[in-house]
Simulated scan of single mutants.
Amino acid sequence: MIKKIYLVGAGPGELDLLTLKAVKIIEQADVILYDALVNEEVFQFCKEDCLKVNVGKRKGKHLKQQEEINELLVEYAKTHEVVVRLKGGTPFVFGRGYEEVRAIKEAGFDVEIVSGVSSTTSVPESFMLPLVDRKFNDSYRTITGHDIDVFKSIVKSYHDRENLIITMGVHNIKNIVEYLLSIDFPKDLPIAVLSKGTTNDSSQKIFTLDEVNKQNEEFFEELKKLTPAILFIGRTIHAMKEIQ
């Protein structure tokens, strides 16, 4: 029987949003390689002798490069029975999960994906912000914001019935907003900065695109302190205001 490595989604942060299946796998783990955004309260489910390895990557601070993480997964699988890669959110949404699966498969091991609750949906919902509301919109688009050139190549125009949900975009918010205004996104379109959603430290800040565009550098430096955060752009923010 081929040994299996588990890629497990730890959810957006709140411990109660960890799935039952994730808990069952964590309880069996001999080794856990975990991300920076994983709530370390999950370790209460571990065996006492479980080896926990922080391989977190945050902007400007990588404890391990992706290639090193891939190698560690394979090396630990050679010496331990149950190896778990614990990832923030869910493994295949902005988490390089497929790169890890490919490395594991190439090394001759099997993989099981245990889906988690994605921050792209759960964080807005934790602020009572609907992703789709028939009064305001019919669709939403999820995109990363860390590379402004890639962002520009994907987001080409404005549609008043679509929301943008931008992960990893706070450090680029100034460039993102300038670009959106240049392609005729309305100046009065609301933008929400949703910080640490689902956790006890959660907070929100709501502006219009024009308000953000007029801010100074001190404003943007303060926003960076709110990471991890999601940028939510769209008129559905008005729905949140109605029910909060």
Rank of each mutant, 00 (worst) to 15 (best):
G108L: 11
G108Q: 11
F109A: 08
F109M: 08
F109Q: 07
F109K: 07
D110G: 15
D110Y: 13
V111I: 14
V111R: 07
V111D: 08
V111C: 13
E112C: 14
E112A: 14
I113G: 11
I113W: 11
I113A: 11
S115L: 15
G116Y: 05
V117K: 13
V117A: 14
S118N: 13
S118P: 09
S118L: 08
S119F: 10
S119L: 11
T120Y: 13
T120V: 15
T120H: 09
T121P: 02
S122I: 13
P124V: 06
P124N: 03
P124L: 05
E125K: 10
S126Q: 06
F127K: 02
F127T: 01
F127Q: 02
M128T: 09
L129W: 01
L129V: 04
L129P: 01
L129M: 09
P130Q: 07
P130M: 07
P130C: 08
P130T: 11
L131M: 04
V132E: 00
D133W: 01
R134P: 01
R134Y: 01
R134F: 03
R134I: 03
R134G: 00
R134Q: 03
K135P: 06
F136E: 10
N137D: 02
N137G: 02
N137T: 02
D138L: 09
S139K: 12
S139E: 10
S139Y: 06
Y140W: 13
Y140T: 12
R141K: 15
R141M: 15
R141F: 15
R141T: 15
I143T: 05
I143S: 03
I143Y: 02
T144C: 05
T144Y: 01
G145K: 07
H146I: 04
H146V: 06
H146E: 05
D147V: 00
D147A: 00
D147P: 00
D147E: 00
I148A: 03
I148Y: 00
D149P: 00
D149V: 05
V150R: 10
V150Q: 11
V150A: 10
F151W: 00
K152A: 07
I154S: 05
I154A: 04
I154E: 09
V155G: 00
K156D: 00
S157M: 06
S157P: 03
S157R: 08
Y158V: 02
Y158W: 04
H159R: 12
H159N: 14
H159E: 13
H159L: 10
H159P: 01
D160C: 08
D160A: 08
D160F: 09
R161D: 10
E162C: 14
E162N: 13
E162S: 12
